[in-house]
Design a protein around this nucleic acid. Structure first.
Lengths: 374, 374
DNA sequence: GCAGCGACTGGGAACGTGCCCACCAATGTT
DNA sequence: AACATTGGTGGGCACGTTCCCAGTCGCTGC
């Protein structure tokens, strides 16, 4: 068989084309299973072999695209598959190959509220796209509390998935290490620390934040405060870092009084803005480490009668679809979340295919989107 | 440090011989529960039996909670399980029980991407909650195009799931009938027609729309137009029906010129509002069949200089989190989407447990949430 | 003419579990 | 005393697949 070696392994882990054709065509007509078989039983590889007048092994070879099959045998098998409407049983296959062809995407529900947080929806979409031309299925695991976390690890231990994607990691999250110990391929969206040992992809948070603050400086703002994310997450630390970097590069001092830490929620953003305005009444710009928090900050500014951007310029982070609907529309740093999802899916597939492959660390570029709030 | 993700993550020369590697490494190396097993093999029910000094069947009985086990045997088995860190292999179990303990949730991505997003996120959350105290796993299938649809049906035919949830159905969607033919338990969120034969749960769209329009009438509005959803969906027809009902009940005529049909997208809502304002410049109220479309309508109203609610009162539908962030905050009809998800999950589990159980049709109540746009 | 080889084939043995059935040891019943 | 009954146990088989290996066949080369 021919393997594409130089190309991007976008179909890593999938079987050759023959397989797809046999499957889709075979299943495309009736799916019944009921009509084709007398006893109402689903046809098995044995049934197909009998019908085609060959052995089980030959059928298996045809299905899996082996070249060691004569043309006539292959034709007979394909005909039998089509007639019987045969679809291989993936569970039985999984038992012998010890592969399930499915991966888990773990999302901490406590933070996400999935609805209010467009980030996770985009990750899901991206992962799904990354899996699109593979036979790999996506298992979604929303972790709400410790009980669910136990169930998750149990489920993973049961070998129901070939690998795991973690959508949001905190510095001291025990899960990544646990999965690593279990020897299960694991890829993170984000990282625990900049020295992350597991494969991961993350947005260039430092660079994005730097660009945002530089933009505010270019607009002539002099007192730029920031609402940062949680410090036990690399995202939070990175975006704060970028703010500090940009100020220092401009010869300004990133004073501690200009920083308010929050938790990526709207209410948190509102409270942080309140704190900052009390502490530094003269601030004329706000870099907020997420759009959701920026929404909270904007409402606080409005409540205090500060005009945006005349009195206070505001820049968010994420370019979630919220940003287009705020008043005024929010200047923000776009991070390619969907692409992030696609990337970690691809990396995971590769790692499943070859567990000894070197770990990958991928940074995705961010981009400033200027709207009317700055 | 910064890698472009668009590039191919190439690791020198290692040709991905997928299936070969899977075989050599897959079953063996790290996957065991820590260092319990010397050979690196995961313990099986046989290992546990040997360790506990009992037969395989007894171990199986303990695991599956049979009462026909002596206390001492049970104690010995549990001890062995704990020592060996044994976890039953769900794939092998699935082979013999022909149950996978997982269900699929199918979401048409073509629609979800366009902004009905909060709806699907809430459904996912609800389904996940409905599955919480079960051992059932959730498989998420985002269907983007026809190719993916084929893969979906193939996947279902492979018996990788015990049942299917469909998150959004159009009247002539072939999928529900297909699944029914395959004899796979299927539950819908929404319904194809009011005579839906499959089990389903849906919000009381007619009642909700009626309440919305009644509310506008009570506010003294006289010319109430509507932006409706697509007519090939029961949701769309139902909400339009409610608008008509309420007007008739008040002695008004639901004239065709007061109706503009759209597709549940923001842009669609904007265009529909434009059409209506051109056609009926004197309208003083708008019932929009979804919040997302209402956002579009609001922006069109603002663009035309109509004040909300002074000139035109607006009511949406869904009470998605968007509604709290519009200007002014949107009066809308709340539908319990998360509960909807939980409900269909429960119904499906029941149907899987007893396939001959009668089909269920469940309507969930809606509730008017009055904010400042009306 | 025969060993050697390469292309092709199919039977057997796993993979790890649940379930049927035969069995055994006590206790009860006639 | 012989016989059912009950609680408890384990061996064999089946689930549907893949892979190892032992074949068979036809062809080449000396």
């Amino acid at each position: 068989m021919t393997l594409r070696s130089a190309e991007c392994p976008k179909t890593a882990g999938s079987a050759p084309e023959v397989w797809h054709n046999a499957l889709v065509n075979g299943a495309g007509t009736g799916y019944g299973g009921g009509g084709a078989m007398p006893g109402g039983q689903r046809p098995t590889i044995k049934t197909v072999a009998a019908r085609a007048g060959v052995g089980r092994t030959t059928v298996s070879r045809v299905i899996n695209g082996s070249t060691l099959v004569s043309d006539e045998a292959r034709a007979a098998v394909l005909a039998a598959i089509a007639e019987l409407n045969y679809v291989p049983n993936s569970v039985a296959r999984g038992l012998v190959t010890s592969r399930t062809n499915s991966i888990a995407l773990v999302i901490p529900e406590s933070e996400s509220r999935l609805g209010a947080e467009p980030y996770f929806a985009a990750v899901i979409r991206g992962v799904s796209i990354g899996l699109a031309d593979t036979r790999t299925q996506l298992q979604l695991i929303l972790v709400r509390d410790q009980g669910e976390r136990d169930r998750l690890t149990a489920s993973v231990a049961e070998r129901r998935v070939d690998g795991v994607l973690l959508a949001s990691v905190h510095e001291h999250d025990p899960l990544p290490a646990l999965l690593e110990d279990m020897g299960l391929p694991t890829v993170l969206a984000g990282r625990r620390t900049p020295e992350e040992s597991l494969s991961h992809a993350h947005a260039d948070n430092v660079g994005g934040a730097r660009a945002a603050v530089r933009h505010l400086l270019e607009r002539g703002r002099t007192t730029i405060a920031t609402v940062s994310g949680p410090m036990d997450m690399d995202v939070g630390r990175g975006r704060l870092q970028g703010w500090q970097d940009a100020l220092r590069a401009a010869g300004a001092r990133p004073e501690e009084r200009l920083v308010a830490r929050a938790d990526f929620t709207e209410e948190g953003g509102r409270a942080a803005a309140r704190t900052l305005l009390d502490r530094v009444p003269g601030l004329d710009a706000l870099f907020v480490a997420s759009d959701v928090m920026a929404v909270g900050a904007l409402s606080e500014l409005r409540a205090r009668g500060r005009r945006v951007p005349e009195d206070v310029a505001v820049v968010g982070f994420d370019d979630s679809f919220l940003a287009r609907h705020t008043h005024p529309p929010l200047t923000t740093v776009r991070q390619p979340v969907e692409e992030l999802g696609t990337t970690i899916a691809r990396v995971l597939l590769r790692e499943i295919a070859d567990p000894r492959a070197p770990r990958q660390r991928i940074a995705l570029p961010t981009e400033l989107v200027v709207r009317e709030s700055s």
